[in-house]
Computed example of a mutant assay.
Amino acid sequence: MTSPLEEFDPVIHPPKRLAAMALLDASEGADFSFLRDHLHLSDSDLSKQMSTLQAAGYVTIHKSGRGRGSSTSFTITKNGRAAYRRHRRALTALLTQEEASQNL
């Protein structure tokens, strides 16, 4: 029997990235300001978190325009969706094990 911890993804696990992945998994994409506001992050912190997810191949970053009229949006990749769902299953399994051991 394998431990749920073996399925944890260290890139996704930090709370800010986990929350971003959850939002992206439930949508077709999100723009920068939406994620920033919903995750309560600064611009620089969101950029850092999303760059890490992009480097792992979990999100794509789309930029359009320049200067004041520019916009940035994010979408989850197929690999990112699979990794997020695997990580979520591992978390659920771990919590379920914990609850079962408390009921013994």
Rank of each mutant, 00 (worst) to 15 (best):
Met1Ser: 15
Ser3Tyr: 03
Leu5Cys: 04
Glu7Ile: 00
Glu7Val: 05
Phe8Pro: 02
Phe8Met: 12
Asp9His: 06
Pro14Ser: 11
Pro14Arg: 11
Pro14Cys: 13
Lys16His: 14
Lys16Asp: 13
Leu18Val: 02
Ala19Trp: 10
Ala20Trp: 05
Met21Thr: 05
Met21Trp: 03
Ala22Cys: 01
Leu23Tyr: 09
Leu24Asn: 04
Leu24Gln: 04
Asp25Trp: 02
Asp25Tyr: 03
Ser27Ala: 15
Glu28Lys: 06
Gly29Cys: 01
Gly29Ala: 01
Ala30Leu: 04
Asp31Met: 00
Phe32His: 14
Ser33Tyr: 03
Ser33Leu: 03
Arg36Pro: 00
Arg36Gln: 13
Arg36Met: 10
Leu39Cys: 04
His40Gly: 03
His40Glu: 10
His40Cys: 09
His40Pro: 00
His40Thr: 05
Leu41Lys: 01
Leu41Thr: 02
Leu41Gly: 02
Ser42Arg: 06
Ser42Thr: 13
Ser42Ala: 10
Ser44Lys: 12
Ser44Met: 14
Leu46Ala: 09
Leu46Gly: 09
Leu46Ile: 06
Lys48Ala: 15
Gln49Met: 06
Ser51Lys: 13
Ser51Trp: 06
Thr52Gly: 12
Thr52His: 14
Thr52Ser: 12
Leu53Val: 13
Ala55Trp: 05
Ala55Arg: 15
Ala55Val: 11
Ala55Glu: 14
Ala56Thr: 15
Gly57Ile: 11
Gly57Gln: 10
Thr60Leu: 13
His62Leu: 06
His62Asn: 06
Lys63Ile: 08
Lys63Arg: 15
Ser64His: 14
Gly67Leu: 02
Gly67Gln: 03
Gly67Cys: 02
Arg68Cys: 04
Arg68Gly: 14
Ser70Leu: 01
Ser73Val: 01
Ser73Asn: 00
Phe74Arg: 07
Thr77His: 07
Thr77Val: 06
Thr77Gln: 04
Thr77Phe: 12
Lys78Pro: 07
Gly80Tyr: 02
Gly80Cys: 07
Ala82Asn: 13
Ala83Thr: 09
Ala83Tyr: 02
Ala83His: 06
Tyr84Thr: 07
Arg85His: 14
Arg85Gly: 05
Arg86Gln: 15
Arg88Trp: 05
Arg89Cys: 03
Arg89Gly: 09
Ala90Lys: 01
Leu91Glu: 10
Leu91Arg: 14
Thr92Asp: 08
Ala93Gln: 08
Ala93Pro: 01
Ala93Asp: 08
Gln97Ser: 11
Glu98Pro: 00
Glu99Cys: 08
Glu99Ala: 15
Ser101Trp: 04
Ser101His: 05
Asn103Lys: 10
Leu104Gly: 12
Leu104Ser: 09
